[in-house]
């Protein structure tokens, strides 16, 4: 026998179900007055530094239908590449930027829109800079464990080309599944759960 490692096991995931909005965005689904606002609804204020952008997302199932009951969270660095997190040891992030957003997809269109800023570049473990990106987490009825992916920006071609995470994608024709297309100040990002255009999801 040897000594025990005394590790616990992570609590198992279960689907967020069809009523995830009751818990996470109650004001959105007509349960007013319990919380003053839905958390994650606003990421920026008048003083937030950086380029203002909108990010329009949809989550699309294997029958090409957008999910109308999904919930998406994004997490990102500020304009200087710093995170608003206690674990950020490189400096203080912009206090006027939360870095975290949460949106339900619309119950009729399946679309949601984040108003945020373009993130700065964050170093990879070996010090190389990653391209600007959002960390994205998707939950919904029928999704048994939250899906992690990333969103990169179509107008950051050079940075994307040298990004160490994108470089790890063996099937190069899947790289575009992580790149949102820019039109004016709006980026559009469709997340495909399966099929030909299945988005690259990460085991982080």
């Amino acid at each position: 026998m040897v000594q025990s490692l005394d590790r616990l096991k992570e609590t198992a995931s279960q689907t967020a179900g069809p009523y995830v909005h009751i818990g996470l965005t109650p004001n959105f689904c007509d349960i007013p007055g319990v919380y003053p606002v839905d958390l994650g609804d606003t990421m920026v204020n008048d003083k937030t530094r950086g380029e203002r952008i909108k990010v329009k997302m949809r989550v699309i199932d294997g029958a090409d239908t957008p999910l109308k009951d999904a919930l998406i969270e994004i997490w990102q660095a500020d304009a200087d590449g710093l995170h608003n997190s206690p674990s950020e040891m490189r400096g203080a992030a912009d206090p006027n930027f939360t870095g975290w957003g949460r949106k339900p997809t619309d119950m009729t269109t399946g679309e949601c829109v984040f108003e945020t800023i373009k993130p700065g570049r964050v170093p990879f473990k070996d010090g190389r800079k990653m391209a600007p990106h959002l960390t994205v987490w998707i939950v919904a009825r029928g999704i048994n464990i939250g899906l992690h992916t990333r969103m990169y920006f179509s107008d950051e071609e050079k940075a994307n080309d040298e990004d160490p995470v994108l470089a790890r994608i063996e099937h190069r024709r899947r790289v575009p599944t992580l790149i949102a297309q820019r039109d004016g100040d709006t980026y559009t990002f469709d997340i495909h759960l399966q099929g030909e255009k299945e988005t690259v999801f990460f085991d982080i």
């Binding site: 960390t135 995470v165 790890r168 994608i169 399966q194």
Partner: peptide, 21 residues
């Protein structure tokens, strides 16, 4: 119809995953 069918891409955590709100 809501399950990814391809393997997840393994990624040792970078600062983007180590930090959080």
């Amino acid at each position: 119809l809501r399950s990814p069918q391809k393997a997840l891409l393994s990624l040792d955590n970078t600062l983007s995953e180590i930090t959080g709100p």
